[in-house]
């Protein structure tokens, strides 16, 4: 117990450093927003800011979910293609079986939770390295999505128009509901990470897994829980993606995991574990979509967008390293 206390207090002391990284990310976001507002003629419009919010929704959810795994010192590569699996599961329940839409949404969440559970069991019980376990699940989920859908998109348009009508509906401030889903998901994640025992153990495992185990914490169980939480967020992201295109796309998602991990890293989550925050991750996700929307509105070709996004990720981590060096 003493060790837990010790590691908890260590986390507290880290908090100030984390908030600095968050501040840097926020500063970069503001600079980017100002920069694009000046150089891109149609960037500074309410409509475009709404578009940035909309474009952030799925990546924001994936990044929020994967932040937990990264804080434990793990990783989850299955979250991108996991969205193909969860949205196909939604489609099968709500379209192919013709069941009510809420059951479809539930199926989306449950299938995400299932993927997370398998990831957690492989990592905590079978002792596979998280990178390998979730890399395997990246292919399994993509393959399962294609097997279950027979490699055909499942369209919600006709049998379940309510999916797009509701989630892309804009009752508040002209912002689509998928954005509010992201904010609600992030709020829940913030509470989980900062106010519950799950969050405390997430940080503790990432700071010193052995010490946490020796202090009597059932590390395996909490690790599984962390990946299940990540999986539920994959389910939410699947709902968001399916709502945007009014379809479950069985080949989608390859590469989304890297965008999500980049968002978390930009927001100050350390791949070494023990550090990270939901607010930082969200800022990171906004930074990425501001960048891609800004470059796109400014008609910068895709190939340059990749280069620039890469440079921003490198820049963000480099700043993080400078900060650590300054601290020690």
């Amino acid at each position: 117990m003493q060790t837990t206390m010790a590691s908890t207090s260590r986390i507290r002391s880290l908090a100030s450093g984390e908030s600095l990284q968050r501040l840097l990310a926020l500063g970069a976001l503001v600079i980017l927003l100002l920069f694009f507002s000046v150089i891109a003629p149609n960037f500074a419009s309410l409509e475009n800011y709404r578009n940035i919010l909309t474009a952030t929704a799925s990546n924001g959810l994936l990044a929020t979910g994967v932040t937990f795994a990264i804080i434990t010192g793990g990783i989850d590569l299955s979250i991108g293609t996991g969205t193909a699996f969860t949205s196909v599961a939604m489609g099968i329940v709500a379209v192919n079986w013709g069941l009510p839409l809420p059951l479809g949404l539930l199926a989306g969440l449950a299938s995400g939770g299932l993927v997370g559970l398998v990831n957690g069991l492989l990592i905590a019980k079978a002792k596979l390295p998280p990178f390998i376990a979730t890399l395997g699940m990246l292919y399994v989920t993509l393959g399962m999505a294609q097997v279950l859908s027979d490699v055909h998109p499942i369209y919600f348009t006709d049998p379940q128009p309510a999916l797009q009508d509701f989630f892309m509906g804009k009752p508040i401030a002209g912002i689509p509901n998928i954005v509010w889903v992201m904010f609600a998901g992030a709020a829940v994640a913030w509470v989980l990470l900062n106010k519950t025992v799950l969050g405390r153990y997430t940080f503790a495992i990432g700071s010193n897994e052995e010490a946490t185990r020796l202090s009597g914490v059932n590390v395996d169980r909490w690790k599984i829980a962390v990946y299940v939480v990540g999986g539920l967020f994959v389910g939410l992201a699947g709902i968001v993606l399916a709502s945007r295109s009014a379809s479950a796309q069985p080949s989608q998602g390859m590469g989304y995991e890297l965008n999500a991990i980049a968002a978390a890293v930009i927001g100050g989550t350390s791949l070494a574990g023990g550090e990270g925050s939901i607010v930082g991750t969200l800022i990171g996700a906004f930074l990425i979509s501001t960048l891609s929307t800004g470059l796109s509105v400014d008609n910068v070709p895709q190939q340059f967008q990749y280069v620039i996004t890469g440079l921003v990720v490198i820049g963000a981590v480099w700043l993080d390293i400078l900060r650590r060096r300054g601290r020690s």
Binding site: L24, G27, A28, I31, L32, F35, I39, L291, L295, D298, N299, V300, P301, F304, V307, I308, L311, V312, G315, A316, W318, L319, L322, R323, G326
Partner: peptide, 27 residues
């Protein structure tokens, strides 16, 4: 140290900026 950080951030922004203005020209 703080100065280094600010310079770093500015450098990142500058890279972004120069890359954009270079590419934004209509082909």
């Amino acid at each position: 140290m703080k100065l280094t950080r600010i310079i770093g951030l500015a450098a990142t922004a500058a890279i972004v900026a120069s890359a954009c203005s270079g590419a934004a020209v209509t082909p």
